[in-house]
């Protein structure tokens, strides 16, 4: 009995001591584990952020390159469009006749300013382009809006009206 009695407290002591240490250890272990897990998650998150930002950065760099290339392309297009040869072609398309250095061209374009119909006076034109006058009469570089030219407008008018005009000149 005594022996049993002696053994029993030893066991309880052991048990007691183990139960007394265990919660602390568990807490520490848990804390450490939580810290480790948190750290791992944090590191993993950071890693994925880095990867993500890296990809975004790379995309943005590519975008910058693309935009710069586009800018250059547009600059080139603008230069091409404003090149003298291209302007000349465009002017020809619009029906603007270039005057050359050697020829004294005299071409008149109807004004789009005044609408009032008035009879023509050719004599005045002759006076302007007379030899004594140092000036020359030049094509007015005003293209009619909407792609309409004087010729087209004249062609669009009814034939009777055109005939009437001719008659008026003859008179």
């Amino acid at each position: 009995m005594n022996g049993r009695k002696k053994r029993t407290p030893r066991r309880t002591i052991k048990r007691r001591s183990s139960t007394r240490i265990a919660p602390r250890a568990v807490i520490v272990v848990c804390l450490l584990a939580a810290f480790l897990v948190a750290g791992t998650f944090f590191a993993a998150q950071q890693h994925f952020y880095v990867v993500d930002y890296g990809m975004k950065n790379s995309r943005l760099k590519k975008q910058i390159d693309d935009l710069e290339a586009e800018k250059r392309r547009l600059l080139l297009a603008r230069e091409m469009a404003s090149s003298p040869a291209e302007l000349k072609r465009a002017a020809k398309r619009l029906g603007v006749v270039p005057s050359t250095a050697s020829s004294d061209e005299t071409v008149k374009v109807s004004s789009i300013v005044k609408e009032k119909a008035l009879p023509p006076k050719p004599a005045q034109n002759e006076e302007i382009s007379s030899e004594g006058n140092p000036f020359v009469v030049k094509t007015a570089a005003t293209a009619p809006s909407g792609g309409e030219t004087r010729e087209r407008k004249a062609a669009a008018r009814p034939a009777a009206e055109r005939g009437e005009s001719r008659q008026r000149i003859a008179n």
Binding site: K108, V109, S110, S111, V113, K114, E115, K116, A117, L118, P119, P120, N125, I128, V137, A140, T142, R150, K153, A154, R157, E161, R162, E164, S165, R166, R168, I169
Partner: peptide, 9 residues
């Protein structure tokens, strides 16, 4: 001349 408009020279 038929358009009867004033001419800008």
């Amino acid at each position: 001349p038929g358009d009867g408009r004033p001419r800008v020279v």
